[in-house]
Design a protein around this nucleic acid. Structure first.
Length: 601
DNA sequence: AAACCACCTG
DNA sequence: CAGGTGGTTT
């Protein structure tokens, strides 16, 4: 009978898998010993540049918006939605229109422009020089905003508030520039330290691995018997060390720059002009039922919330404190966008907890936080199957499409996305799980999209339940903000799991009949069975999960059911499988409580 | 009508 | 794995 161990199935059933996965588990970037490899280039510039540029961008946007929302405008009659979208449109349009009037800009603006550009270029310059062109076009966009801001400011405030004279501000501005540069340099130093630490830890890791490999070859048999679990644990411990070190240092650096830059910007820029009406309008935006939200709604909301959050100091601190407070409190306050998913909160007085920055990067991807492209077609923001598996891959397409269809000044913005993505992608998986494990959960932050880790978890849950109710799913994915879309996606996953499961069952049942199995009792499923191997490969590819015995029983019953049905030629009936499904759906067992932990994986 | 499902397809 | 479709149930 072929369902039990085949000869070659005994050849290290999980061994090959373990070898592969072990190698894969080591952060790819750590395998490089070259100092100036991707890791270096990523950490020494691009991600920080991203953060800094976004901060600048946000700052300018918020000032911009505040001016646009001054009471003088008849925004009071507009409903929140239209005023927000109009804001985007206007914002966007203003860029182009201003370019046309560029000749009217005086030298003062030119000088400021040059300084801002210098700062940003300094920040954007990455070691491999790839971002230079993008940085330049982005500078153009930033300049647009800033210039528009100045224009507006002049028009509206000229009578009562005179601009400081050119010469008097120049020195202080230059000082600030210097300060900024110094801060950035110390950032660079920190990052270099990080790189050294990481390569050091990596070397240790590498040598330990080699030692283990030696031991392994000596005791190959034993290792195979145990499935290599012990060595896998050790590798994971090392990974943890690496991750911790990485996060700590990056967080420190990022946090520091944020603090300093925000202070600098606060001093450098004119005080934001708060419009109570604007805030009220924003506050009154109905908290749409999540299930009703289309993806485009989400993206618009995200963008608007982003500038909303960065607009108001009061709301900043309130937001930050609310995140930490009990959920019930935060729910009591009507908000345009649930706090826990506010894309990028940035406070002046209370800097973000460093891990939140990392978390945001990992949760939403770099482009969500840094591109701020309300003008992008909503469809481009939509998560595709590919972007699910490879969250970063959608970016390439977006940029391509965007540059094809949108104006030049927008291409500059879009290119922000592409700056450091390849680097981020490398570390996405590991850092994401790290982020999930850390303050994401302690802060009660939830995902608004399913991640590869959720998929992994779902697959493992399939070992317990083939037909999970949507309630069960909600209970076991507490870190997911459920809406209709998420729910159906999860249900679809399990549907796909079942499909594969039943296809295998039918295949192996027919094979058993071909192989001349005469009695149902001869149909057995063990951990050595080919069938089990196929299933395990599908749902537990990393083989780091101990499949419950009950699953083997259920699989065996399923196989027997198929065998019987086919033997009795019931398969001539088009719906012959339904009877089997009815049996199997009753065999679900409880999913262990462990799975309820958001950080299960 | 909505939710859920299996099936088919890419 | 997701999209689409059609069937079934509530």
């Amino acid at each position: 009978m072929n369902l039990s161990p085949s000869e070659h199935s005994m050849h290290k059933p999980s061994d090959g898998c373990m070898e592969d996965s072990k190698a894969e588990h080591l952060l790819p970037c750590y395998r490089r010993s070259t100092y100036d490899g991707p890791l270096a280039s990523y950490h020494s510039g691009s991600i920080i540049s991203h953060l800094l540029r976004k901060t600048l961008h946000n700052k300018l946007t918020s000032l911009d918006n505040n001016l646009l929302y001054l009471p003088s405008a008849n925004t009071s009659g507009l409903d929140p939605e239209s005023s927000r979208t109009e804001d985007f449109a206007q914002d966007d349009h203003s860029c182009t229109s201003f370019k046309d009037e560029d000749l009217s800009v005086n030298e003062h603006l030119q000088a400021k422009r040059a300084r801002v550009e210098n700062i940003i270029r300094g920040m954007a310059a990455s070691p491999n020089g790839r971002s230079h062109r993008e940085a330049e076009s982005e500078c153009e966009a930033v300049r647009c905003r800033r210039d528009l801001l100045k224009e507006n400011k002049r028009k509206q405030r000229l009578p009562q508030h005179q601009e400081p004279s050119h010469s008097s501000t120049k020195t202080s501005k230059d000082e600030e520039c210097h300060k900024l540069k110094e801060q950035l340099q110390s950032m660079q130093r920190l990052l270099h330290q990080l790189q050294e630490k990481i390569s050091h830890v990596h070397e240790q890791n590498y040598s330990e691995n080699e030692e283990r490999e030696d031991v392994r070859s000596e005791h190959d048999q034993v290792k195979v018997e145990t499935g290599g679990f012990s060595s896998d644990r050790a590798v994971k411990n090392l990974q943890e060390t690496l991750k911790c070190e990485l996060t700590r240092t990056v967080s420190e650096s990022v946090d520091m720059v944020f603090r300093k830059l925000s202070m600098t910007l606060l001093n450098q820029s004119p005080q934001p002009c708060h419009s109570p009406e604007y805030s009220e309008t924003e506050k009154r935006i109905p908290d749409d039922s999540p299930s009703e939200l289309s993806d485009s709604d989400e993206s618009i909301k995200a963008s608007s919330a982003e500038h909303f959050e960065s607009n108001s100091l009061e709301h900043q601190t309130e937001a930050l404190s609310l995140v930490v407070r009990k959920p019930s409190l935060s729910q009591a306050v009507k908000r345009p966008y649930p706090l826990h998913q506010t894309p990028f909160q940035f406070g002046y007085s209370a800097p973000l907890h460093d891990s939140q920055i990392l978390e945001h990067l990992l949760k939403y991807g770099p482009h969500s936080a840094f591109s701020a492209l309300p003008c992008l077609p909503a469809a481009l923001e939509r998560s595709s199957p590919d972007s699910m598996e490879h969250p970063w891959e959608s970016v390439g397409m977006r940029s391509k499409v965007s540059s094809g269809h949108l104006g030049q000044h927008q291409t500059g913005l879009v290119s922000v996305d592409t700056l450091c993505l390849p680097r981020v992608k490398m570390e996405c998986g590991d850092l994401q799980s790290l982020a999930e494990r850390s303050s994401f959960m302690t802060l009660n932050i939830s995902f608004e999209r399913l991640t590869p880790n959720h998929l992994k978890k779902a697959k493992l849950m399939f070992f317990y339940t083939r037909y999970p109710s949507s309630n069960l799913l909600k209970n076991f994915f507490p870190d997911v903000k459920f809406n209709r879309c998420i729910t159906s996606q999860l249900i679809k996953w399990f549907s796909n799991f079942r499909e594969f499961y039943y296809i295998q069952m039918e295949k192996f049942a027919r094979q058993a009949i071909i192989d001349g199995v005469n009695d149902v009792k001869d149909i057995l499923v063990t951990r050595e069975s080919e069938l089990f191997r196929a299933l395990n490969m599908h749902y537990n590819k990393a083989n780091d999960f101990q499949v419950p015995d009950r699953f083997l029983e259920v699989a065996e019953i399923t196989l027997q059911e198929f065998y019987s049905a086919i033997s009795l030629s019931r398969d001539s009936d088009p719906s012959w499988k339904k009877a089997i499904y009815k049996v199997i759906c009753k065999l679900d067992s409880d999913v262990p409580e462990d799975f309820k932990s958001p950080s299960y994986l």
